[in-house]
């Protein structure tokens, strides 16, 4: 189960860029192609995951980590086990972004969006692999600290449980933010019966109040 970056979802990248409508300007579309190719070449995607039994009190068995908040509790309802995962595009992607900011900020903005879509792609690929590995069990969607009422601070605990510093080179700043920046931690419930998709939906999202897509009547589909 090698972590892999296979491409970027154009719609997602355009959404990060705030480009409305279906037809992006030609130069933006061309730049996205360019940065996708650059990221495929430069990024060194890595991921680490572990499977835990979910104790009745909500802690991950064998650890002191207990995901906090009502929303994650709902998200994991009916799941006997949970996958804890972390993924990153690696230090090189951050470096490329730093360098591009010096060269051309407009391109940097597009690269940033492309990199955002790229780390999602790495996570999606990992989840697809996990789903195959865990079958016939069913997986919920990913839920990350900062969604809904799950505090962002728990990101640090998740990194420590997964030993991300040693395993995939993801560290924490004193403020609890992950480095490299294009990194994700998430929880995925493992259930014996299928779950309804999109449970909770937008309301789980930390961006609920701000989200331009929701205000426009749409959804990012996560």
């Amino acid at each position: 189960m090698e972590p892999r970056l296979t491409g970027i979802d154009r719609r997602e990248a355009l959404r990060y860029l705030g480009v409305r409508g279906d037809k992006p300007p030609a130069d933006v579309a061309a730049s996205l192609d360019k940065w996708e190719a650059a990221l495929l070449k430069t990024a060194r995607p890595r991921a680490v995951w572990r499977l835990f039994d979910l104790a009745p009190d909500g802690t991950l068995a064998g650890t002191a980590f207990r995901p906090a908040g009502e929303d994650i509790r709902r998200h994991l309802a009916g799941c006997g086990r949970v996958v804890l995962m972390a993924a990153t595009l690696g230090a090189e992607a951050d470096g490329l972004l730093r360098r591009t900011q010096v060269e051309d900020m407009a391109q940097a903005v597009i690269l940033d969006a492309a990199a955002g879509a790229a780390i999602e792609n790495v996570c999606d690929n990992l989840c697809a692999d996990l789903a195959a590995e865990m079958a016939p069990a069913f997986l919920t969607g990913r839920f990350s600290p900062g969604y809904g009422d799950m505090p962002l601070e728990q990101q640090g605990e998740m990194c420590r449980v997964l030993d991300t510093a040693r395993r995939i080179g993801v560290g924490l700043t004193p403020g609890g933010l992950m480095t490299p920046m294009k990194s994700v931690t998430a929880l995925i419930g493992v259930a014996d019966t299928p779950r309804e998709k999109g449970e909770g939906g937008c309301k789980n999202c930390a961006q609920y109040e701000n989200c331009g897509i929701r205000k426009a009547g749409g959804s990012c589909g996560r």
Partner: peptide, 8 residues
């Protein structure tokens, strides 16, 4: 126009 073009 969008952010990249504004920056351009």
């Amino acid at each position: 126009i969008f952010l990249p073009q504004l920056i351009n």
